[in-house]
């Protein structure tokens, strides 16, 4: 134990990475922190606007809507509160898991394994985006838009579409990048390079997207 402590301190002496990590990985981490603060800016705005409106009261359309009443439909069913969004959450969690598997296979330079798990991750991401698109279409049909909605306070729609939209944009970009990674993997780009660190970096981004969803889910669907 003592040697590890000693070594950890010595890592800061220059000529080495004190975190024992490549610069690319550090950059992704700190970029994710900055993206966290962007989402945080949006989410605390949501917090401020929501607490400045009366909390949910039955029949009062100036009060904040109850998510169990708003989000109760899915493709082919109604009156099942939160079911569809739970499915979406599971999809994203599982796609995060498949991404970890891809990274793990990358550590053992298993090109086929990486490709396989990337495919599952991309599918998971696509299902999520398409589900999000379905939900948006459904809510817009019900009369929810950026200015008003039939469920309660008018700010609800704007905040919901803005924040889930911003998140969905991140997921879509992630799916595109993962697709690019899959193609590069198949072409042997990383195999020739000698490591699959790019998959790891994309993995960090993908888990970040999952993490943000945990808080978006909390903010709009649970609280």
């Amino acid at each position: 134990m003592e040697t590890t402590v000693q070594n950890a301190k010595e890592l800061w002496n220059g000529g080495d990475s004190p975190f024992k990590v490549s610069y690319g990985k550090i950059m992704i981490w700190y970029f994710l922190i900055s993206d966290t603060f962007t989402f945080a800016g949006l989410l605390i705005s949501y917090g401020a606007v929501r607490t400045s409106q009366p909390s949910h009261k039955e029949g009062d359309l100036t009060s904040w809507p109850d998510p169990n009443e708003v989000f109760s439909a899915g493709p082919g069913f109604h009156h099942a509160p939160l079911v569809f969004v739970t499915f979406m959450t599971f999809t994203l969690i599982v796609s995060s898991v498949t991404m970890v598997r891809a990274v793990q296979e990358g550590h053992y330079m298993n090109k086929a394994g990486v490709a396989k798990w990337l495919v599952w991750t991309i599918i998971g991401g696509l299902i999520f985006v398409l589900s999000q698109a379905w939900e948006w279409t459904h809510l817009i049909h019900e009369g929810m838009n950026l200015k008003s909605n039939p469920f309660g306070a008018s700010s609800f729609g704007a905040l919901f579409f803005l924040i889930t939209g911003f998140h969905g944009l991140h997921v879509s970009v992630g799916v595109l990048m993962n697709t690019w990674a899959l193609i590069s993997t198949q072409r042997g780009v990383f195999h020739r390079r000698g490591h699959y660190e790019m998959i790891e970096k994309l993995g960090l981004y993908w888990h970040f997207v999952d993490l943000v969803w945990v808080y978006v889910f909390l903010a709009f669907y649970l609280l």
């Binding site: 890592l11 975190f19 024992k20 990590v21 970890v100 960090l204 888990h207 999952d210 993490l211």
Partner: peptide, 16 residues
């Protein structure tokens, strides 16, 4: 869980 296991933070050096 997501940060420590999926993003591997539990296994990184404490400083990072």
């Amino acid at each position: 869980f997501i940060m420590s296991e999926f993003m591997h933070l539990k296994y990184e050096l404490k400083a990072m």
